[in-house]
Amino acid sequence: MSKTITIDGKTIPFEDGQTIMEAATAADVYIPHLCHHPEFTPHGSCKLCTVKVNGRNCSACTFPAAEGQDVLNNTQELIDDRRKITQMLFVEGNHFCPSCEKTGNCQLQAVAYHLNMLDDHFPLFYPNREMDASHPDVLIDHNRCIFCALCVRASQQHDGKNVFAISGRGINKHLIFNAESGQLKDTDLDKNDKAAHICPTGAILIKRTGYQVPIGQRIYDHHEIDEVSLATTEHQHGE
């Protein structure tokens, strides 16, 4: 007999060492997430995957599954919490979807759609953030970075490089590049690197590819992120 947990009353098997997120995904149960990616060590920063485990809030992407856990995922309370978290992500950056190349392929936007987020609720920060267009093939727009650190992890753990890091705190937190000049063009990032394609938002874009698929025909224009997330093993949306 394999060990099991329950998620919203449904019995889910797991193997030792699996997180709640991994067990859920294997059983086709979607838990909203942005900073989680099955290939990389969990980061636990976006908090969208917050679930209630035996009455306490935990991040499903970092919390190990254990025999008999009673996990709540799709409750109105958790959905409301996740919507608020998503609203916070929107107001602390500059997310102007109509002028973003990633619109329709953006996981931040798709999670917001999934949670039926219709407004930002909070006052907007409008932080002053820069762009880095120095690299011949890759554009960085710091306005849209949510500090999920997926590019940091992909560069280190998949590409065998160390192009990205997160620096600073609070409103001054930002993505930095591993080069004396601080510019992306002076790093060893290549447009074919996993790190250049893993951004869940429009913060890292491949130049000259943005409108190959017209708005209205993009992934999340017609498919919810839960469906896409469970159907794709290769989590690489957006091209």
Partner: peptide, 12 residues
């Protein structure tokens, strides 16, 4: 109306 939109891009 919801987030300032295009006109709010002057905020920077």
């Amino acid at each position: 109306a919801i987030n300032g939109g295009l006109p709010a891009m002057r905020n920077f």
